Simulated scan of single mutants.
Amino acid sequence: MMFSGEYIIFLCLALIAIAGGICMLRLSKVVHMVVALVFTFVSIAGLYVLLSAEFVAAVQILIYSGAITIIMLFGIMLTKHNDQTFPHIKRWKKAIILASILLFAMVMFSAISNLPLEGEATSLHEENTKQIGIALYSTFIIPFELTSVLLLVALIGAVILAKKEDKEAENSE
């Protein structure tokens, strides 16, 4: 049985995404978890490229792999935390978790394999960046601007809270 290059790339990207997610859950240091999360985000961006959604892939790289990861690292650096590992999970709990994951995988596989994929090809993949831009800046301009204001307020609030904690720490010493 011959596999196409697209299929092999899909398998590689899917395995990297799954491995990154598993590593993120299994690692004990927070910075290592963030690096594993970056691997997951980048491989998902590669999957978007395979789906001819280049704009979404670029946004995935810029927003998730870049901005969200940096915000997570800043949050880790600005907060006080103990880098403790969680107590080990008992074997029977691990078995239940593994059985749940396998059951979920079987249900998803059966649902996807029975999915009818007939239909006409659409032109959504042609000039998708232009289509998204037109929709974003015409139909959805108000929610877009409100989201930017909300993110700005959240950033200012985080800086104010971080400065208050620093001042309280200095006053207590």
Rank of each mutant, 00 (worst) to 15 (best):
V34Y: 14
T129A: 10
S65I: 01
I61E: 00
E6M: 07
C12T: 10
L155K: 02
Y137P: 04
S138N: 15
M108Q: 11
S172I: 03
K167D: 02
I44A: 00
G75S: 14
T129N: 07
A19R: 13
A99K: 08
F104Y: 13
A105V: 09
G46A: 01
E168A: 01
A53D: 02
A19C: 13
I44Y: 00
I156K: 02
E170I: 01
Q131P: 02
G66E: 03
L98N: 11
M24A: 15
G5D: 14
V107L: 10
S4T: 13
F41Y: 08
I44P: 00
M77S: 11
K164H: 05
F10I: 02
I8E: 10
I156V: 14
M108L: 07
T122I: 02
G20M: 08
L11N: 14
L103M: 06
N82D: 12
T122L: 06
A45G: 14
V34F: 14
S113F: 14
L73A: 08
E6D: 10
A169V: 02
E173M: 05
L73Q: 05
K93D: 10
E54S: 01
I71Y: 09
I97K: 10
V56H: 00
G5Q: 12
I96K: 13
S123K: 04
L102N: 04
Y7D: 05
K164V: 04
I71T: 13
R26Q: 15
L78N: 12
M72T: 15
T139I: 08
M77Y: 15
K130E: 11
H125A: 06
L73G: 04
I156M: 09
V107R: 05
V149F: 08
G21N: 15
K93T: 07
Q60W: 00
T122F: 03
Q131V: 05
M108Y: 03
F104T: 11
